[in-house]
Design a protein around this nucleic acid. Sequence first.
DNA 1: AGTAGCAATGAGAATCATTCCCAACTAAGG
DNA 2: CCTTAGTTGGGAATGATTCTCATTGCTACT
Lengths: 155, 155
Amino acid sequence: MHEQAALRLAVQEQRYTSVRRALVDTLAGAGRPLSIREILAANEDLPQSSAYRNITALIEAGVVRRVTGVDDHGRFELAEELSGHHHHLACGRCGTVEDIAPSARLERAMTEAARVVADEHGYEVLGHQFDLVGTCPACQRSSTEWTMPATRSST
Amino acid sequence: MHEQAALRLAVQEQRYTSVRRALVDTLAGAGRPLSIREILAANEDLPQSSAYRNITALIEAGVVRRVTGVDDHGRFELAEELSGHHHHLACGRCGTVEDIAPSARLERAMTEAARVVADEHGYEVLGHQFDLVGTCPACQRSSTEWTMPATRSST
DNA sequence: AGTAGCAATGAGAATCATTCCCAACTAAGG
DNA sequence: CCTTAGTTGGGAATGATTCTCATTGCTACT
């Protein structure tokens, strides 16, 4: 994994420094997309400017990718080439995002959909995003008093 | 449509004021999710504080829903009950989001996936989100000089 | 019509994430 | 060593979103 990361950075003429290595370790260890805030919490004496700068560098090198969850804050995870392919399950209450395993049938349907749309809209389709939105077990328990989560389903 | 909106606001003991009506008209007329900036542009003398406040009110009433695109800025559209069911196609360059028609096959696969995940993770799945990410025709033309769009595909 | 009560409005301040800037630092090559 | 270019940390700047508050406008009731 670190080799891959170093290699990809090298392509961009960038170094695989200790800060970057730490970020990769943090993301790899989490097993789910992390927000900058979580990344900073996991690396106490890491200046936020360095966190942003290096996350950006890693994104540009293709080592990390940005995930959009239910809130509007960026969350980051290792690129699929380094971590394996998967989908996301987001909690509409607390915003946490979990990784979930992909299904072959769903993959096929999505690929097909992408092809059709590319044809019809003239887009060059680069990828897609499928997230399930729900309420995590913890939030289900901790809140009987509630009615209207910020609506958010598309399909 | 306005009846629906008024009704839903009434449930929350809120009024369907002219500002709110204007917002609904704007969103209905756009046919795609709009950012606050776009909404303000379409309603020249609308104070931004009112735009945010009322969009929030409409979201809480279930008239509008928030869509997260490729950038981290909120975009808003009418709830599907008022506008019909659809997916999104986002341009990774300019961030614009278009509506696209759903496909029956994809719908079935997604519903199935949601069921499986709900079982396995203990989540109460409320909905899902499927967005295709690509490059719109305009951006394809306007930029031959480019290599690495902020990576963003999940599946 | 008159008025109390409460939601709604507009302007700007406050907050929060993210980006930008710059001076000091470090690694790699000659 | 000595140079060069990428890197770092700290803080300022930016931008979007939320909050505050005094004022205004409905609604219902009289």
